[in-house]
Amino acid sequence: MDQPDPTPADDTGTDHTIVPVRIEEALGAAAMALICLISFANVIARYATNVSFAFTEEYSVFLLVFMTFVGASAAFAGNEHIRITFFLNRMPATLQRLCELVTLLATTLMFSLIIYFGGRVTYTEWYWEETTPGLGNPTWIYTIWMPILSVAILLRVLGRGWARFRKGRAA
């Protein structure tokens, strides 16, 4: 009978990566710092002048989405994405590998759909010259990052899958 493989859930290393995960970490930290700075400046402005900055909500929402996608990319690279390891660790090794494969395929499908539909939305916004209601910026400037960062996530997912299922190695 197959023995449970203790390594998949415990494997959080990024040794297999070619592009360092520090890039995602730096981008996420920069986005968080900007959100904090914008929000703090808005609070000070409201307190001092009773008027709020108009751009804070628009930029903060964009930065939050950006930070989420960058964080997801780093999490997939380090095998730190959310999963139910309680059950996974109690399965035989072959079933663990099957679950990892199903996860890889489902994640690949989901982010491929985000790339496709996010690209269509971005193109439509660019084509019709849509602007944001608050500042009048072109909306495609914000939405273009969704397919771009989904490509980064997809590459991290496929890199993790390659490391996990490479012949003779249990990443």
Results as ranks from 00 to 15, higher is better:
128 W>V: 09
50 N>V: 07
135 L>M: 09
5 D>A: 07
97 R>K: 14
94 T>Y: 15
148 I>H: 05
67 M>F: 08
4 P>Y: 12
19 V>D: 01
30 A>Q: 05
146 M>F: 11
149 L>P: 00
45 A>E: 12
19 V>A: 01
67 M>K: 11
5 D>M: 06
44 I>C: 03
31 A>Q: 01
94 T>S: 09
72 A>R: 08
54 A>N: 15
124 T>S: 12
80 E>N: 15
62 F>V: 00
149 L>R: 03
118 G>S: 02
27 L>N: 03
107 T>P: 00
144 I>R: 15
151 V>E: 02
141 I>A: 07
157 V>C: 01
43 V>I: 10
53 F>Y: 13
156 R>N: 06
15 D>Q: 14
80 E>A: 13
25 E>F: 10
33 A>Q: 12
135 L>F: 08
29 A>V: 08
66 F>R: 01
125 E>R: 15
127 Y>I: 08
63 L>D: 03
145 W>K: 00
83 R>A: 11
50 N>S: 15
121 V>S: 14
19 V>Q: 02
96 Q>R: 05
58 E>M: 03
21 V>P: 01
97 R>Q: 14
60 S>G: 10
122 T>K: 01
45 A>L: 13
166 R>E: 08
163 A>Y: 11
77 A>L: 12
155 L>P: 01
8 P>E: 04
14 T>I: 09
100 E>Q: 10
91 M>A: 04
47 Y>P: 05
49 T>F: 10
119 G>F: 04
131 T>P: 02
81 H>K: 08
127 Y>A: 07
4 P>M: 03
6 P>L: 03
153 I>N: 00
90 R>C: 02
85 T>K: 14
169 R>A: 10
11 D>H: 15
160 R>G: 01
